[in-house]
């Protein structure tokens, strides 16, 4: 499992050569993925990128799987990317990552960001740790498990998983912290704002 930080030069290449960076985000209805898209998307817009986000949801507002896309670059593109093209795939619930692996690049270069939160279904079909690791290792060289549950326990709030991840992926994105902070300030108020600011910092400071 390699970890690396992107340089600004990398970003210039990405946005001039391919015109487009593709993030797939998956998780469960009710986890606040739409807000995640809004915060990250508006930060990138402020930086001058063309951004498009979209969501496949519906009944999944309660407990079903949700898949979202966020794409940014120099020009406006389709709300859904082609399979095998995602630069980054984020799962805010662990096993959800298995739902969207078709978007991973065949050259194993997609970054997988997986929260360690587990939500079992009513039937006993949660995949084993070994199976998950085996599959993910086949797919990518860049697997990042985010130990969100430790942070969740600290703040006793399950709704901050997205914000922790937002803090974590900051290292890979071509924007500085201020842009995201500003968006977080616009999307939360009061106690929730303080909580999410802290969660963001926890994610940012993860190794």
């Amino acid at each position: 499992m390699k970890k690396y930080v992107q340089t600004m030069q990398y970003w210039e290449e990405i946005t001039t050569n391919t015109n487009n960076y593709i993030i797939v985000i998956t998780g469960l209805g009710g986890q606040g993925l739409i807000r995640f898209l809004r915060i990250l998307g508006s930060s990138l817009v402020k930086k001058g990128y063309k951004v498009i986000t979209s969501e496949k949801h519906g009944l999944s507002q309660r407990g079903g799987n949700v898949t979202c896309f966020l794409r940014f670059g120099e020009k406006m593109v389709a709300p859904i990317p082609i399979i095998g093209s995602a630069d980054m795939i984020i799962a805010t619930e662990k096993a959800c990552i298995l739902d969207v692996l078709e978007y991973a690049k065949l050259d194993r270069s997609s970054k997988l960001i997986v929260a360690t939160y587990e939500k079992k279904s009513q039937i006993n079909d949660y995949p084993s740790e070994e199976y998950l690791l085996k599959v993910l290792n086949e797919i990518s060289d860049y697997i990042n498990f985010i130990p969100v549950m430790e942070i969740v326990a600290k703040f006793t709030n399950l709704k901050i998983i997205n914000t922790i991840i937002l803090g974590y992926i900051l290292r890979f994105l071509p924007i500085s912290e201020e842009f995201i902070n500003e968006s977080i300030n616009q999307h939360f108020a009061g106690d929730l704002l303080v909580l999410n600011q802290k969660a963001f910092e926890e994610g940012r400071d993860l190794k």
């Binding site: 469960l28 209805g29 009944l59 999944s60 507002q61 309660r62 407990g63 079903g64 799987n65 082609i82 399979i83 095998g84 096993a95 959800c96 298995l98 739902d99 692996l101 078709e102 065949l106 079992k120 279904s121 009513q122 039937i123 079909d125 949660y126 995949p127 199976y131 599959v135």
Partner: peptide
């Protein structure tokens, strides 16, 4: 593309609740 599409994983089947 077909190779990617044909791959199947053991996913968790969740119903809306």
């Amino acid at each position: 593309l077909n190779q990617i599409k044909d791959k199947r994983y053991e996913t968790v089947r969740r119903r809306p609740v």
